[in-house]
Simulated scan of single mutants.
Amino acid sequence: MDLSGDGDFFTLLTASYARHVGRPLVPAGADAWWLYEQAPFGLLAHDTDPDPVFVYANRTAQRAFEYDWDEFTALPSRYSAEPVNRAERDQLIETVARDNYVAGYRGLRIAKSGRRFWIEEVTMWNLRHPDGGYAGQAAIFPRWTDQVAITT
């Protein structure tokens, strides 16, 4: 299912963010197209499976991770981090599940090409329907920087 322009998913993302974080995710008048095509931050969302799979990645996130829509939405979200960094990522997911959101996270991630980069100033939140039903988690990252290799 392609959620890139889905109005209901846009509402789920933005309403959950506003409810948990206490401020709007997007500027007034922005729509699903703006969030997918023009947002200046990366936005990812995964589903509720025990091994969550990405269900959404806007264009900015696709550029950072080097996956297109079809690749991203078939990818278990754990593969966004290398095995050595997955325990930290799992701890973030558990904290968000308990507290509804976390802000200020920084984590090392890996692109399709193997390029390592830091996602910075991350806010991650639970996606909840108006009735409280759990629908997964989403994260924004306004900045990312390549990890600089140390050479001797």
Rank of each mutant, 00 (worst) to 15 (best):
M124N: 09
M1T: 15
E82S: 09
V102I: 12
R59Y: 06
Y67F: 15
Q137W: 09
A15S: 14
L3D: 07
F117R: 00
A139C: 11
N126T: 14
E120P: 01
R98L: 08
A28V: 08
W125T: 00
A111Q: 02
Y56T: 05
F72V: 12
Y101D: 01
A28R: 08
Y79T: 04
I93C: 07
P83N: 07
I140P: 07
R89V: 08
Y79D: 10
V84K: 11
G22P: 02
E71C: 02
F41E: 10
Y36R: 10
D90N: 12
A87Q: 13
W125D: 06
M1V: 15
F9N: 06
P27E: 06
T73R: 03
Y36N: 15
A97C: 02
Y134R: 10
S4Q: 04
L3I: 06
D31C: 08
T60P: 01
Y79C: 11
D90H: 11
A111L: 02
W69N: 09
A32H: 03
P27T: 06
I93W: 10
S16N: 06
R19H: 11
L13Y: 02
I150Y: 10
Y56A: 09
E120S: 03
A111I: 07
L25N: 01
Y101H: 14
L127G: 02
Y36A: 04
W144R: 08
E121V: 03
P83T: 05
M1G: 15
L35S: 03
Q137A: 07
G42M: 12
F41T: 03
I93H: 07
S4Y: 01
G133V: 06
V122I: 13
R106S: 10
D31Y: 09
F54D: 12
A97M: 10
E88T: 10
W144E: 12
L13M: 14
A149K: 10
L12N: 02
Y36I: 05
R128F: 00
V21E: 03
E71L: 12
V26K: 02
L108T: 05
M1F: 10
D6N: 14
R98N: 02
A103T: 15
R128L: 15
G5I: 00
A39E: 02
G29A: 07
Y67Q: 04
R109K: 09
A64Q: 12
P83R: 07
R19A: 12
V84A: 12
I119F: 05
